[in-house]
Simulated scan of single mutants.
Amino acid sequence: MARYTGPVCRLCRREGMKLYLKGDKCYSDKCPVTRRNYAPGQHGQGRKKVTEYGLQLREKQKVRRFYGINESQMVKYFDMADKMKGITGENLLKLLELRLDNVVYRMGFASSRAEARQLVTHGHFLLNGEKVNIASVITNVGDVIQVKEKSRSSEKIKSIVENHNGTTVPWVNVDLEQLKGTIVAEPTREDVDIPVEEHLIVELYSK
């Protein structure tokens, strides 16, 4: 399945909430969700009866769009989560949080997950000292993600460092001087800031 390349603000409006896909724009008065808080399209403002399947689908689509993954990736992560010990829904969110592009975003080295994915794909980061350009890599506790030496002089990286607010998630330690972050623990359910009922996703894929 091809990646969605249309206006990402339409995705937020479709889910009826901010998914923070546009970086700084999401925090400004220009955010379309704030200005037009209804679904896009001709019938976006019409009332629609939501079925049980519809609720499950919306939760799944919400998570997909939040992390910027396609359907085949979502199915793969669900299968992985289902085979892990613990609660399948929480395992799924944990795997998505540990994606390399999400970790870079959580470190504060990108304004959005889309930007983090682009930076990783363009080879600006090292994973445990090795060059990596695959955004979907699942990281582990103890992994070190660092900006490449050659990339530190780029205007983009300099801008990101200058605008870094110093706050990160508790499971990542960030060293701004060395431009690196270390995963010190696995993310917990409380660390996931998207309001999602993951059990509905489990029900959907378990049919």
Rank of each mutant, 00 (worst) to 15 (best):
A2G: 04
R3P: 11
V8H: 01
C9L: 03
R10I: 13
L11V: 09
C12P: 01
L21R: 07
L21S: 03
D24T: 13
Y27P: 03
K30I: 14
C31W: 11
R35Q: 12
R36E: 05
R36T: 09
N37T: 05
N37M: 06
A39R: 09
G41K: 08
G41R: 05
Q45N: 08
R47N: 14
K49V: 11
G54D: 03
L57N: 10
R58C: 06
Q61W: 04
Q61G: 07
K62T: 05
R65A: 06
R65V: 00
F66L: 08
Q73Y: 00
V75A: 07
F78Y: 08
D79F: 08
M80C: 07
A81G: 09
D82Q: 07
K94H: 07
L95R: 08
D101M: 07
N102P: 13
R106V: 07
M107T: 07
M107K: 07
G108L: 01
A110I: 13
A114T: 15
A114P: 08
A116T: 12
A116K: 00
V120G: 11
T121R: 02
H122A: 07
H122F: 02
H124F: 01
L127C: 10
V132K: 13
A135H: 13
A135G: 05
A135N: 12
I138H: 06
D143S: 03
I145Q: 07
V147E: 06
S159Y: 09
N163H: 12
N163G: 12
V169Y: 15
P170V: 04
P170E: 09
V174E: 06
K180Y: 13
T182V: 06
I183R: 01
V184G: 00
P187R: 00
D191N: 12
D191Q: 10
D191E: 12
P195C: 11
P195S: 10
P195Y: 09
P195N: 12
E197C: 15
E203R: 12
L204W: 11
L204G: 10
S206D: 13
S206M: 15
K207N: 15
